[in-house]
């Protein structure tokens, strides 16, 4: 299957018309789930994902940490979110994604500020079109901030990969399915430290570095969209 599908056209563009280092459009809105303590809705290309955060006393009591909060992110896909119906409930892929998202969030939340608490992050993927784990984490980070949870930084993520032997930013569904590598990464933008990194496929050391630098260039723009989403909730205009 691989190699049979042309992912880069003769004029050097990708199938959806993007350049190698071009992102799909990203939109984030906060405060979309009224009952939750914090929430965010993200549209990242054709991905549509909601993250909602509840902060509460951990239950049962013996599960509490007396000196810090517990974080639990749960990534869940709707049955209608993908081409073939996704059977509801966790599977091995979604369990792994929940784990890496939880760990990335835990690396930025100031856990000691909320002893005995549990921070539940519920992620619902309504429509999936490649790059859902990163879109989910990017939205979750905004939702956690929206809930007023103390954080060191707003985690931001991006993906890069390899299609037709070329390194490309923000893989499309076709590039994800038929490409040669997929590299999701998330950082804390103020320090540039990496809190999520996965890779599968086939890349050389040089190609990996190329992917990382493309992602590093793209992430400030996504950070800005995250911050604007939080500010918009309070109708704060830039520069006011």
């Amino acid at each position: 299957m691989e190699g049979n599908i042309k992912l880069i056209t003769d004029d050097g563009l990708r199938l959806d018309g993007r350049a190698f280092n071009e992102m799909r459009p990203v939109k984030i809105q906060t405060g979309v789930i009224e009952k939750a303590d914090g929430s965010a809705y993200i549209e990242w290309g054709a991905n549509k994902i909601i993250a909602a955060v509840y902060v509460r006393e951990a239950y049962p009591k013996h599960a509490q940490n007396i000196d810090r909060a517990i974080v639990k992110a749960r990534y869940n896909m709707s049955g209608y979110s993908v081409e073939e119906r996704k059977r509801p409930g966790p599977d091995r892929r979604t369990m792994e994604i929940s784990k890496v998202i939880t760990e990335a969030l835990e690396s930025t939340i100031v856990l000691e500020k909320l002893p005995r608490a549990e921070i539940d992050v519920f992620i619902q993927v309504l429509e999936a079109d490649a790059g859902t784990r990163i879109a989910s984490l990017t939205a979750s980070s905004v939702a956690v901030a929206d809930a007023g949870v103390p954080m060191r930084d707003l985690v931001v993520g991006c993906t890069a990969g390899k299609a037709d032997g070329k390194m490309v930013l923000d893989l499309s569904k076709d590039e994800d399915n038929f490409g040669d590598a997929d590299i999701p990464m998330a950082i804390l933008p103020r320090t540039g430290k990496v809190v999520l990194l996965q890779l599968d496929g086939n890349v050389s050391y040089e190609e990996f570095n190329e992917a990382v630098s493309m992602m590093m260039n793209a992430m400030p723009r996504i950070s800005e969209i995250q911050r604007d989403a939080l500010m918009n909730k309070y109708n704060i205009e830039e520069g006011e």
């Binding site: 890496v100 760990e103 690396s107 804390l188 540039g192 990194l197 996965q198 890779l199 050391y205 590093m216």
Partner: peptide, 23 residues
Amino acid sequence: GHIHAMQKGEVGEFSLEEIQKAI
């Protein structure tokens, strides 16, 4: 010599230099 899988696991953070060193 090509990288086929990578995974950052557990809570914590790595700098890019650390990741390159790890490779």
